[in-house]
């Protein structure tokens, strides 16, 4: 296992992310709801540069028992990563793919040490 200082932890605000090259591999680092996370910049769908996508929110549905219709709410703002190829959505806090449990982001350990964001490969 190798460890890499990517940047100062205070250089990333909530909802920020950047892609760095570590040992020849592209790694995306994220700050989501106060947590630091790192994922391989590779989408399990067709190999797209998923970490270069945008972080935004997404919709969530609840069935209104009164009207029998779906209410759609915008949720998880700055937390849902959308791959620039084909728009697959991933929860950047968990790495889960939102439409299928067969896929997820490839995760790496990320931690803050002495004010630095450190990623382990």
């Amino acid at each position: 296992m190798s460890e890499h200082v990517v940047c100062g932890a205070d250089e990333l605000d909530d909802g920020d992310h950047l892609v760095v090259e570590l040992e020849g591999r592209e790694i995306g680092v994220f700050r989501v709801e106060g947590e630091f996370l790192a994922y391989t910049n590779w989408c399990a769908h067709q190999g797209g540069p998923v970490c270069e996508g945008s972080l935004a929110g997404t919709t969530e549905a609840t069935l209104d028992p009164e009207t029998g219709e779906y209410d759609l709410d915008w949720v998880k703002e700055d937390r849902v990563l959308r791959c620039p190829w084909h728009a697959w959505e991933f929860d950047a806090l968990t790495g889960d793919c939102l439409h299928s449990d067969q896929y997820r982001l490839v995760e790496h350990e990320a931690r803050v040490e002495d004010g630095d964001l450190v990623v382990s490969l």
Binding site: H45, T58, L72, A87, E89, H99, S100
Partner: peptide, 15 residues
């Protein structure tokens, strides 16, 4: 299309 447009149909629970 579900992968590409899931946010339009968030009430779906499976493929």
């Amino acid at each position: 299309e579900y992968g590409q447009w899931r946010q339009e149909v968030p009430y779906l629970e499976k493929s």
